[in-house]
Design a protein around this nucleic acid. Sequence first.
DNA 1: ATGGTCGGTGGCCGA
Length: 275
Amino acid sequence: MDDAVHAGPRVVRVRVATWNINSVRSRIDRVVAWIERSDVDVVALQETKSRDEQFPYDRFADLGYEVAHHGHSQWNGVAIASRVGLADVTTGFPGQPLWGEPLADEARALGATCGGVRFWSVYVPHGREVGDPHYAYKLDWLSCLRDAGQAWLETDADRQIALMGDWNIAPRDDDVWDMAAFDGATHVSQPERDAFAAFEPTGFTDVVRRYAPGPGVYTYWDYQRLCFAKKRGMRLDFVLASPALAARVTGALIDREERKGNRPSDHVPVVVELA
DNA sequence: ATGGTCGGTGGCCGA
């Protein structure tokens, strides 16, 4: 017995990640290999492009992870995998807007509590074109998520909450390779940037940028036109942390290597380390 | 050569 080993404050390091994997079924071997290699405790996935009954639950269980998935069709789809517990799974956030004809829930948000932290895997609507109904939906969706986040912190300002995923917004000019190429485009418009910035006064802050500053640091590269080789990317994936969670962050990285090799996703994982 | 993509699906849509 060596009591000294067990004395003092217990420091628990946790690595969490978010990754738009652009189809979990076509890329499950890569996803499994990355999770094993990267030693993450919690990973939020977006664009699984699967119905629940198609989701490869066994592959995560074999790795020692519990996993929750929310998917209706070949579109969207979000998941959270965890090896530090997975409880209170919630599909969709309170007040999440509907879409389609007839109006219906899209599988774009999934909440779960893992290791005392409330995680949300979010896949923000793309917007398609400025002025398109989908663009209005995107702005509304972001506004409603902000309201939900604000309400959670008003209930308890000390809650550890992570809103992480593909936000489909490049908040700063440096978050795209050339602003001239995005003239009039979605992802960089002022209303979208305002919708993203509106999280800041509620207490949610991006915890990655200070550890992975730009310019030229991206999380997404279009498959077309050799964008990755030409370093033409966008920073679209973010981890927004509540104040109590942000205080635990000791580091972050964007795993650009994962964009290489055979059949990668067009997004790469974003990893945050908590103490 | 001045372009160059995917995935899921089912014959195009969404990104």
